[in-house]
């Protein structure tokens, strides 16, 4: 049963990677004159989505247990605004802001996790309340947009890490490729979470809980504790991702990161994580984020379409993958049933 499920997630992952390559290569062919084929364009996908990658990793953990967290977008806005407020209006250092961001994320994780796992309240209702709470708190902190001018913060944000490859433009000038430190943090997070899911007790028990919580209890797993930990970790990663998001935007305001929860959920689902839990992984999620980034840059490069199309295209894609999951699920259930008969 286990190997079967893993092969199902393998199939979904293959579809996702294939889709990403297809989209990116067709983008390169269509918009080759607008610089879509340059290596920096590919790296920009990571630069502009570093925060989203980390947040989606956290969300994937929760979704593997069969839960969900729709507060991530609002918590990101709260983290950005609090960081900006602390650095600009209170004169605190960037390190304090970073610590505060992580603590905010952890607090959300702790409260939401406790209510979901120990009081057994539907995760949707709780995180919906969390979403509105965080958005409202953002307005309490500051109703105006705060742009960040803190020196250390900007140093972190603009520290270019030059890569050993590049390209020569039509004037014969060599242009080097670069990334920001945020990308390294994001990729490190993906690797660490992937390893944790694969090789630790905690990681494996998340899959067991999502597959069937009742059997997990019978197997002797501490379902409530592990679920709680998944939400806490998710909260922490949201805090970290929110700070990375802030490093990219260098500002904090009420309407920031609106709809980010949708991007993160889409990324996880497109990456092969089942909404019902028990199947999925963060490598798929990474590709989900890259697909979202590709859609966004295709639409910006095209130039005439409104930015609303990004969200509509992503929603359509999410819808397609949900249907795909349902179809694959029912086919494999039928096969399983036939074998039993």
């Amino acid at each position: 049963m286990k190997s079967k499920k893993l092969s199902r997630s393998g199939l979904l992952l293959t579809i996702t990677v294939g889709l990403f390559l297809l989209m990116y290569i067709s983008g390169m062919l269509i918009f080759s004159d607008k610089g879509f084929a340059k290596p920096q364009m590919f790296l920009n996908l990571f630069i502009s989505n570093a925060g989203l990658i980390v947040i989606s990793c956290g969300l994937t953990l929760v979704m593997i247990t069969g839960g969900i967290d729709i507060s991530v977008g609002s918590v990101t806005a709260l983290v950005c605004t609090v960081s900006a407020f602390m650095m600009e209006n209170m004169g605190l250092s960037a390190v304090t802001a970073l610590i505060a961001s992580l603590i905010i994320g952890l607090l959300f994780g702790l409260v939401q996790g406790y209510l979901v796992s120990y009081l057994e309240i539907q995760p949707f209702i709780i995180t919906l309340a969390g979403m509105f709470f965080a958005r409202g708190m953002t307005a309490v902190v500051s109703t105006e947009m705060i742009s960040i001018k803190n020196e250390l913060f900007l140093k972190w944000a603009k520290a270019k890490i030059v890569l050993p490859f590049g390209y020569t433009n039509n004037k014969g000038v060599y242009i080097e490729s670069y990334i920001y430190p945020t990308v390294i943090v994001a990729l490190l997070t993906v690797v660490l979470v992937a390893l944790m899911l694969k090789y630790t007790r905690f990681g494996r028990s998340l899959y067991a809980i999502g597959g069937n919580a009742q059997s997990a209890v019978m197997m002797g797993l501490n379902v409530r504790r592990d679920k709680f930990r998944a939400y806490v970790l998710d909260g922490f990663l949201t805090g970290l991702g929110g700070f990375l998001f802030c490093l990219n935007s260098c500002a904090g305001f009420v309407e920031q990161a609106k709809g980010l929860e949708m991007d993160a959920i889409s990324a996880a689902v497109i990456g092969g994580t089942l909404l019902t839990g028990g199947v999925g992984g963060v490598v798929g999620t990474l590709f989900g984020v890259l697909i979202k980034g590709t859609i966004a840059s295709l639409i910006t490069t095209q130039g005439t379409l409104s930015s609303w199309w990004v969200r509509i295209a992503l929603s359509a894609l999410l819808c397609f993958f949900i249907v795909l999951q349902a179809v694959i699920g029912s086919v494999s259930a039928k096969k399983h049933g036939a074998r039993l008969a």
């Binding site: 009081l119 709780i126 509105f132 709470f133």
Partner: peptide, 18 residues
């Protein structure tokens, strides 16, 4: 303000579901 309103409503809904 209208932006801050959700804070109170979120607290109310959490209390009710608990």
């Amino acid at each position: 303000s209208a932006d801050q309103l959700p804070v109170y409503k979120a607290i109310v809904i959490v209390i009710i579901v608990i």
